[in-house]
C-alpha cells in the first residue's frame, strides 16, 4: 500500500501511514483521584502498544477524566487516544476540551455516542447529546482543516490538530446499514476506526467484505477490536446482557470446558488476532480491550507475534 498523507503529529497516524499493523490497548481510569494505577498500567503497556485509549466515563460511571488520564500516560511515554462521548458535554464544552486536550499533548481523539446514563451509577442524570458522534467527528475535522469553530468563527492560531478516530460496531443492527454508517463517519472526517469486540468472526468477515466493496479500507485505517474473556460467565454476560454484542455459543462452551479459563481466554484472543491479521484484508491493526485486565496485554501482543513494536522518529 502506498504511504498515505500524514496530517498530524500523532505517532499512531505515522505508523499507520507507513503501513505498520498497529496495536492499541485501553486503560479505564479509576473511580478515585489517584493516577497511580493509570501510570502503572501505562508503564506496563509502554513497549507493547503504539497508543492507548483512555475511556470517557465508560458505561456512564463517574471516573477520573479521560483528558487528565491522557496526561498521566503521556508522562509515562505512552501515546494516548482520548475518548470523547457526546453524552456529557454540549458543543461548547467539547470544543473547549478539544483545545485543552491538545494543549496538554493529546494528538489522537476517538469520538463516540457514549453509553446511555441508564447503565451507570447516575441513572437520574440528564444527558446532553447536543451533537452526535458523526457531528463531533465533523466538528473536529473543521477545527483542524478549516480552522473554524463550530459556529464558523475562525481559529486564528494554534488550531487543534487531532488524528480523528471513530468506532464501528459490526454486531449491532441493522447489519446492512453498519457499513453505510461507517462510510458516513469517514465522510464526516474519521481517519481511523476501532471496532466493537469481535467474537463472531464470520459476521466481521462479511462486514469487512462490504467495507472493501465500498473502498472504505483505503480511506480510513480499520483496527479490529478484541477482548480476552476471563470466564464463561463473562462470555455469557456479554452474550445476553450487552446490546450490540454477539458472542457465539462455541466461545462460551470452550471457556466452560477449559481447565484454566483465563488461559483459554488469552488463547482465543491470540487466535483471533492471528486470524484477523492473516486472513482478513483491509484491517490495519488490532485494538485490545482487556477490560479490567490490562496486565494480560503484553503476553497477548508477544504471543500474537506483534512484539517488538516499531519505532517512530
Amino acid at each position: 500500500m502506498p504511504e498515505r498523507e500524514v496530517k498530524t503529529e500523532s505517532k499512531l497516524e505515522r505508523l499507520l501511514a507507513r503501513g505498520e499493523f498497529v496495536v492499541t490497548a485501553e486503560i479505564g481510569p479509576p473511580k478515585h483521584a489517584s493516577a497511580d494505577g493509570i501510570r502503572h498500567h501505562a508503564r506496563m503497556l509502554k513497549d507493547y502498544v503504539d497508543a492507548t485509549n483512555i475511556t470517557d466515563c465508560q458505561t456512564a460511571i463517574v471516573r477520573l477524566s479521560s483528558i487528565a488520564a491522557a496526561v498521566h500516560i503521556l508522562s509515562c511515554g505512552v501515546e494516548p487516544i482520548v475518548q470523547m462521548t457526546c453524552r456529557d458535554r454540549n458543543r461548547i464544552a467539547m470544543q473547549s476540551d478539544l483545545l485543552g486536550a491538545y494543549s496538554l499533548g493529546a494528538r489522537n481523539l476517538l469520538c463516540l455516542s457514549g453509553d446511555h446514563q441508564k447503565f451507570g451509577n447516575h441513572p437520574t442524570a440528564k444527558n446532553v447529546y447536543d451533537i452526535d458522534s458523526i457531528q463531533l467527528i465533523n466538528l473536529m475535522r473543521r477545527m483542524r482543516d478549516e480552522k473554524k469553530f463550530f459556529c464558523g468563527e475562525e481559529i486564528k492560531e494554534h488550531e487543534p490538530r487531532f488524528f480523528i478516530g471513530a468506532v464501528a460496531n459490526p454486531f449491532a443492527d441493522p447489519f446492512e446499514f453498519r457499513v453505510m454508517r461507517l462510510e458516513k463517519k469517514i465522510n464526516a472526517g474519521a481517519e481511523f476506526i476501532q471496532t466493537q469486540c469481535i467474537y463472531d468472526m464470520e459476521r466481521f468477515e462479511r462486514f469487512m467484505e462490504m467495507v472493501r466493496e465500498r473502498g472504505l479500507h483505503e480511506r480510513a485505517y480499520i483496527l479490529a477490536g478484541v477482548t480476552p474473556l476471563k470466564s464463561w460467565r463473562a462470555a455469557k454476560y456479554l452474550q445476553t446482557s450487552v446490546s450490540g454484542m454477539i458472542v457465539p455459543d462455541e466461545i462460551v462452551e470452550r471457556l466452560k470446558k477449559a481447565e484454566d479459563p483465563k488461559k483459554e481466554g488469552v488463547e482465543i484472543c491470540i487466535e483471533q488476532i492471528r486470524y484477523i491479521r492473516e486472513h482478513i484484508p483491509g484491517v490495519h491493526g488490532v485494538h485490545i480491550m482487556a477490560i479490567a485486565w490490562e496486565e494480560v496485554v503484553p503476553e497477548i501482543v508477544q504471543r500474537a507475534g506483534l512484539h517488538p513494536r516499531p519505532k517512530v522518529e
Binding site: 457526546c86 453524552r87 455516542s113 457514549g114 453509553d115 446511555h116 444527558n127 447529546y129 452526535d132 458522534s133 458523526i134 457531528q135 468506532v167 464501528a168 460496531n169 449491532a172 443492527d173 441493522p174 446499514f177 454508517r181 458516513k184 466493537q196 446490546s243 450490540g244
Partner: peptide, 11 residues
Amino acid sequence: KSILNGPCGGS
C-alpha cells in the same frame, strides 16, 4: 440519545 445520524452501536 437524540442521535440525528443513527443508529448507534447499541441497536
